[in-house]
Design a protein around this nucleic acid. Structure first.
Length: 490
RNA sequence: CGGGAUGUAGCGCAGUCUGGUAGCGUACUCGUCUGGGGGGCGAGGGGUCGCAAGUUCAAAUCUUGUCAUCCCGACCA
């Protein structure tokens, strides 16, 4: 297998090669759609597992809504249509037939649907048309549903995990009695995402709200978590939307209050997608391959035996099997790779490429000395330690690695966050350094657009708990309430 | 949808200009020596050259058409 392109040579090629060679995903026969391979899917499953647990802890339940949405539902919320209309796949027919000219099958023109169906790009409309039937009184509220699903957005250009035509995600949709309750829910969920990103992905994120330009189609407020990739570009990694009463009004969802009056329901929606896989890859990995945080690694420890003869392997296996049993007892996922069709050197390189946090090697020398060689993926360092107590050692080390890669990412972000006070300085930092640029802005959509047109940088968010010192807009000199976060983004 | 490029073995590519036996690397199969960082040697299997028409004694190579993919731009989680 050839060496990866270096990040410094071509970051985007490095990413593409890494996703494929680490066996996470590949392009499929369908344009813009990917095949998530077992190793990549195993990481996604671990993400799902943790997120699902966090959703349930915060009072949510899972449900499932249809893939298809009647076209008429879509037109009910005006800004929502505007946002998604350009990227919707549409089902127009329900039957094929044999081509009378003998060229395989064709769409049967007699099987045209009376009402065309949209393949969901997101499910607000189908869900709110359903919630209408579920909600009569305040006693029916709140409703806090999540669904794990696939969605389709017909993108022009796609990249594995970062932007694909079909992708997997979860979408939470909640209905509340009061405005404040819906806002609280929106904020709770962006906090859940931030906790997940930091504690499990070891990826520091900024929390903030989007400007009107960047807001979700149909939302009154969009909260976001923004992560910084190693090439200095930002990646929106999760969003949580306060939808106000927009969808309740569009679908006529009202409830009877305690006082006997009738009110529209307040709503939120929130989601993260397989894009998180892209974030995970770009946050930690290096020129040797993937670096996975132990908490999300499908294999936390790989053990490679080094032997000449079969009897030597048997001796090693006895010792290794004990180690495996002890590690499993601690809940550590371990793979003893005693396959004989690859050489140790090949296995070392392979586990490195796939980001396995720890690799143990056991050979005749170790058997003689009662030792094992422990290699860390994050630092690429090796140590020889005693087999006695190796399980405790490994358990500690996995925690250390989790912390270390988080710290490394956090240091990187700190180094690549720059305050600027003039538009000149702003452009200079963007072009020469990248990263998050903290600058004052007058709050107008026009200036935001002008900056985007001139520099390709967008406002990633307005920090929830950032520095609130006022200043002057870097472009117009007008008053600004606080600095906002700019960056070039994926 | 605009600009650029590419379709030849599972993968990566050469061969195309100048038409004449289908090639290389890697992967795969068998044997053997090996094994503490992507092994060595020997033997072997695998391709209607994207598809369709045309020119020619002869087309991967020339002509026309067509399909697909990738990269760069506008859209986006």
């Amino acid at each position: 297998m050839a060496k990866l392109t270096k990040r410094s040579d071509d970051y985007s090629q490095w990413y593409n090669e890494l996703v494929i060679t680490a066996d996470l995903a590949e392009n499929s026969a369908v344009r813009g759609c990917m095949v998530i391979k077992p190793y990549g899917y195993a990481i996604w499953e671990k993400m799902q597992q943790e997120l699902d647990r966090m959703f349930k802890e915060t009072g949510h339940v899972n449900a499932y809504f249809p893939l298809f949405i009647p076209k008429s539902f879509f037109s009910k919320e005006a800004s929502h249509v505007d946002g998604f209309a350009k990227e919707c796949a549409v089902v127009t027919h329900y039957r094929l037939k044999n081509d009378p000219d003998g060229n395989g099958v064709i769409v049967d023109p007699d099987a045209k649907l009376e009402e065309e169906l949209i393949v969901r790009p997101t499910s607000e409309t189908i869900i709110w048309s359903t919630y209408k039937n579920w909600i009569q009184s305040y006693r029916d509220l709140p409703i806090k549903c999540n669904q794990w699903a696939n969605v389709v957005r017909w993108e022009m250009r796609t990249r594995l995990f970062l932007r694909t035509t079909e992708f997997l995600w979860q979408e939470g949709h909640t209905a509340h009695e009061t405005k404040q309750e819906a806002i609280d829910e929106t904020e709770t969920m962006v906090q859940v995402y931030a906790n997940f990103a930091e504690q499990f992905m070891a990826m520091p994120v900024l929390q903030g709200v989007k400007t009107a330009n960047e807001r979700f189609a149909g939302a009154l407020e969009t909260y976001t978590i923004e992560a910084l990739m190693q090439d200095g570009k930002a990646l929106q990694s999760g969003t949580s939307h306060f939808l106000g009463q927009n969808f309740a009004k569009a679908f006529d969802v009202k409830f009877a209050t305690k006082e006997g009056t009738e009110e529209y329901v307040w709503a939120s929606s929130w989601g993260v997608s397989t894009r998180l896989m892209g974030a995970l890859v770009m946050a930690h990995s290096d020129d040797f391959g993937l670096v996975l945080p132990p908490k999300l690694a499908p294999i936390q420890v790989a053990i490679v035996p080094i032997y000449k003869s079969e009897e030597e392997l048997n001796k090693i296996s006895v010792v290794v099997n004990e180690i495996v049993a002890k590690l499993k007892k601690r809940g550590i996922s371990v793979k003893y790779d005693n396959s004989d069709n690859r050489k140790p050197g090949w296995k070392f390189a392979q586990y490195e490429l796939q980001g396995v946090p720890l690799r143990l090697a056991v050979g005749p020398r170790d058997i003689a000395n009662n030792t094992v060689e422990v290699a860390r993926r994050d630092t690429l360092t090796k140590e020889v330690v005693s087999i006695d107590g190796v399980d405790a050692y490994v358990a500690d080390l996995l925690e250390t690695i989790q912390e270390n890669i988080y710290k490394k990412a956090l240091d990187f972000r700190t180094e690549n966050t720059t305050e600027v006070n003039s538009y000149e300085e702003f452009k200079e930092v963007l072009n020469n350094k990248g990263g998050f640029v903290m600058a004052h802005w007058n709050g107008s959509a026009e200036i935001e657009q002008k900056i985007k047109d001139e520099t390709k940088a967008t406002i990633r968010c307005i920090l929830l708990n950032g520095d609130k010192t006022p200043g002057k807009c870097m472009v117009t000199g007008e008053p600004s309430a606080q600095r906002v976060v700019f960056a070039r983004a994926y």
